[in-house]
């Protein structure tokens, strides 16, 4: 099992290093990391170019690739108050979104998650605002990310759709909880089926409970985060 893991990592890191040449694979305290400087040039939908460089460390979990890696920024340039988890790792997006972009590939992880995150911080340093907004902290942010994912504005609909995922009770002929009056299979159905590839029922149940607690407390009103305010 362990052999398979490092084999997979080795192939993937070779693919990664071809593009991002200053990163390297190291072993530290018995765990595998990828460390080094990450220079990048990035545009957002072809606009707002930024060229920058960060020193980062990517931690590969033991059950990779079932679980996505985590990342820390090594120079202390990004303050702990800017979307970092209590353990100091960068918070690249809601857990489900991270999985959907990571898709078991290190290169995806760097290009679709780390660089967009670093880009948004560089952008913030330069212009004093975030290029694509941010989610609220904690459970409220989870509710917000599901609202965006499903394209709905009502939190109760998020509960309805999550309930299907958490209980594994997908029935295509039932009415879609979003209120479109369409059958599930003709509405949010295909999206739900796709989401099942990224998280287990239990994980969706966890998200459902978090959303439920927020909504019960009546806290599901957007509260602006400190970085959304113009400085």
């Amino acid at each position: 099992m362990e052999y398979n893991l490092s084999d997979n990592i080795e192939v993937q890191s070779l693919e990664l290093f071809k593009v991002h040449k200053s990163l390297q694979l190291i072993e530290e305290d018995g765990s595998i990391c990828i460390k080094g400087s990450l220079p990048f040039s990035a545009t957002l939908y072809g606009t707002c170019p930024i060229v920058d460089c960060y020193n980062i460390k990517i931690h590969i979990p033991t059950d990779y690739p079932n679980k996505p890696p985590t990342t820390t920024e090594c120079d202390g340039r990004i303050p702990r108050t800017f979307h970092t988890n209590p353990d100091g790792t960068l918070c690249l997006g809601s857990p489900l979104e991270v999985r959907m972009k990571f898709k078991g590939s290190l290169l995806n992880y760097v290009q679709k998650l780390i660089i967009p995150f670093l880009y948004s911080f560089s952008f913030y340093e330069k212009y004093g605002k975030l290029p694509y907004g941010e989610l609220s902290h904690g459970s409220l942010g989870i509710v917000e990310s599901y609202k965006e994912l499903f394209g709905v504005s009502d939190s109760k609909i998020v509960l309805g759709l999550l309930n299907i995922l958490a209980r594994g009770k997908y029935r295509g002929h039932h009415d879609c909880p979003c209120g479109s009056k369409k059958r599930l299979r003709n509405c949010h159905g295909s999206q739900l089926l796709d989401l099942m590839n990224y998280q287990s029922k239990d994980e969706f149940m966890f998200d459902l409970n978090q959303c439920f607690s927020v909504i019960r407390k009546g806290r599901d009103r957007s509260v602006s985060n400190q970085y959304s305010r113009k400085s």
């Binding site: 990035a42 997006g93 995150f117 694509y132």
Partner: peptide, 21 residues
């Protein structure tokens, strides 16, 4: 200049919003 120096360029589309616990 970045392209000439061999720095990879990425066009970000559909970015995730940052979040934390």
């Amino acid at each position: 200049a970045a392209a000439n120096a061999g720095i990879p360029h990425i066009d970000i589309d559909n970015p995730s919003k940052p979040w934390s616990y």
